[in-house]
């Protein structure tokens, strides 16, 4: 099924449920890993992913098709994950950096994490970055996403994204050197 046909089915109330299942089957894993890299813990990623799809289901009629469907989905998933982290910060009366720091430090207690020492150190280094730089680093380094795609998802210019990635890599390098 083409993307256009899928969107048409999603916007039709009689075919919506079947189409929605197809949509989830197509994008759940990609979106899950995108979210998981941001919130780190599986249960939180699961919550955010479910909320993302529920938002998609509720708002599919408002999707104007000015961007690709997956770009729209990524944008919703990113916003949901950021909202989740902000809420967590508010609940715990912490700033965003402290939340990232706490989550990462507790990562090894998560039964769904079995990263080795290097992987854990990398996570700690990523946690020291500002939100936007973390996002850019994850999308570029792990997902190998093109700057053009990232630009439409994050609504940021390619130049600004390149600069963010450059700074992120630099900071991670310094952090890893210090920790060694």
């Amino acid at each position: 099924m083409t993307e256009k046909a899928l969107i048409k089915s999603l916007k039709n109330s009689t075919s919506r449920e079947v189409a929605f299942r197809q949509l989830m089957a197509l994008y759940k894993e990609r979106l899950y890993w995108h979210i998981r890299k941001m919130v780190k813990i599986h249960d939180d990623a699961d919550d955010v992913l479910q909320n993302t799809f529920i938002k998609v289901f509720k708002n599919i009629d408002n999707f104007k098709e000015e961007s690709k469907l997956y770009t729209w989905l990524y944008r919703i998933a990113t916003n949901e994950a950021i909202t989740f982290i902000n809420k967590r910060a508010k609940q715990q009366n912490l700033n965003i950096e402290e939340v990232h720091f706490n989550i990462t430090n507790n990562l090894q207690a998560d039964i769904y994490y079995d990263g080795n020492e290097i992987q854990f150190k990398l996570q700690q280094a990523i946690a020291t970055l500002p939100n936007k730089q973390q996002l850019v680093f994850n999308m570029k380094y792990f997902d190998e996403m093109k700057y053009n795609e990232m630009s439409s998802i994050l609504e940021t210019s390619v130049g600004a994204l390149k600069a963010s990635y450059h700074y992120a890599v630099k900071k991670i390098k310094v952090h890893l050197e210090k920790s060694n």
Binding site: Y32, W33, R36, K37, K40, H42, Y112, Y113, D114, G115, N116, Q119, F120, L122, Q123, Y141, F142, D143, E144
Partner: peptide, 12 residues
């Protein structure tokens, strides 16, 4: 990169 792509994260 692919090996690290899930960088230690697992799912149930």
């Amino acid at each position: 990169k692919h090996t690290i792509s899930k960088y230690g994260f697992k799912t149930p």
